[in-house]
Computed example of a mutant assay.
Amino acid sequence: MSTHSKTFPTWAFLSLAANGLLVLAIALVLMRKYEWSMASPMIRSAAATRLSDPKSTDSATELGPRHQLNYQQWVELLGREADVAARQQPKHLLILAGDSLSLWFPIELLPPKRTWLNQGISGETSKGLLNRLDLFDKTQPEAIFVMIGINDLIREVTDETILANQRLIVRYLRRVHPQSKIIVQSILPHSARNATWEGRDRLLAIPNRRIRDLNERLRAIAKEENVIYLDLYPLFADADGNMKTELSSDGLHLNPQGYLVWRNALLVLDQFVLEPVALK
């Protein structure tokens, strides 16, 4: 189905933080007594770096050598995985494109009854992502989720450059995948002084208000380019606009509870915007 075939504009911004249905859905899930093993979140997330089919039996113990890949090796690996998806043409294919936040999305938390192709690379920037979008040119996804930008800010890339690259990313995806829904996701906040990430000083040089302003401009780009904007920022921000410490492992990256919040935003988006597949 074409991106433009909906009866409402696909650019229409769904304010997910203010959407009562989303808040209710997330609240209900978070109130349940989920028990997550915090001992090794990276190992539990490793399978998300591969083409994930519900019938897949890949072992997450392969994290070791994969975790030590350099950037070019990652690009080559993701290209091979995209080629597999292009050959198999799985039904209900969805793509995650971005940096480590996408890369480490636990496969067991990704919405089910979909086939997920994870094209995230740790440390990725908007320019890097733009330069490798052709890796999955031959795939036929129903939707492509993009989250990129925080590493640009850490590397002191200007807002104008980040936004220009975001616009080029969207235009490329719309041209190459005209039948796919394109979802631009907001840049998440960081935990400011509560962060324990090794690059904490670099985070402190990036006020979260700058990220909020950048997201507002990103929302405008999504509207202008006729794609969907998913505002995740309010779901992760505390009263001061910083990342909630209970949702992050180090003030920058997400822990399982953080991914649970993101998952439920995707579930609500799927129900109201993407083609329904009776997700549970």
Rank of each mutant, 00 (worst) to 15 (best):
L28S: 13
T49H: 14
D58C: 00
P106D: 07
E76L: 08
A205W: 07
A195Y: 01
S186I: 05
P65M: 05
A17F: 09
S100W: 03
V29D: 15
R32Q: 15
G258C: 12
L230E: 05
R132C: 00
K127H: 07
E76V: 04
L78R: 10
E224Y: 04
Q88L: 14
L279I: 14
L24M: 13
R175S: 12
S56D: 11
N255Y: 08
R66G: 00
R175G: 01
P106L: 02
A278G: 15
L103I: 02
D58V: 09
R202M: 08
Q73A: 14
R155C: 00
I211T: 11
R175A: 12
S249I: 11
L94D: 01
I148W: 01
P106Y: 04
G241Y: 10
A220T: 15
Y233H: 11
P65N: 06
R132Q: 09
E76G: 03
L110R: 12
Q88E: 14
R202Y: 12
S2F: 12
Q119K: 05
D238I: 09
E198F: 10
N226R: 08
L218I: 13
A12N: 14
S100I: 05
L22G: 04
E198S: 10
A47L: 14
S40C: 04
I121M: 04
I182N: 01
L247R: 05
V176P: 00
G149K: 00
W197M: 04
N208G: 08
R217Q: 15
S5R: 07
Q88W: 00
L110S: 06
L78D: 03
L14H: 13
E160C: 01
S52C: 09
I26Q: 12
L269K: 13
Q257N: 09
E275Y: 10
S56K: 02
E81K: 06
M1W: 10
I187P: 02
L235D: 03
P54W: 05
D240L: 07
G98D: 03
H67D: 15
R193N: 13
I95F: 10
P54Q: 02
S191C: 10
P90I: 04
M243R: 02
L51C: 03
R32S: 13
S126H: 00
R66T: 08
L269V: 07
A143D: 07
T196S: 13
G199C: 02
A48S: 15
N70K: 04
G79A: 07
E224F: 02
K223V: 15
K181M: 13
S45M: 04
M42E: 13
G98A: 01
L188F: 14
Y259C: 05
I182A: 02
G20K: 15
R32L: 14
L96N: 11
F136M: 07
R217M: 09
I144A: 02
R167T: 11
V23N: 11
L260N: 08
N118G: 13
R202G: 00
L101W: 01
A164D: 13
A192F: 13
W104S: 09
R155V: 00
N264Y: 14
F145Q: 01
F105L: 01
K181H: 11
D134A: 12
K280M: 08
D159G: 04
L279N: 15
A220I: 13
P9Q: 07
S2G: 13
Q68T: 12
N255H: 05
G98S: 01
D250Y: 11
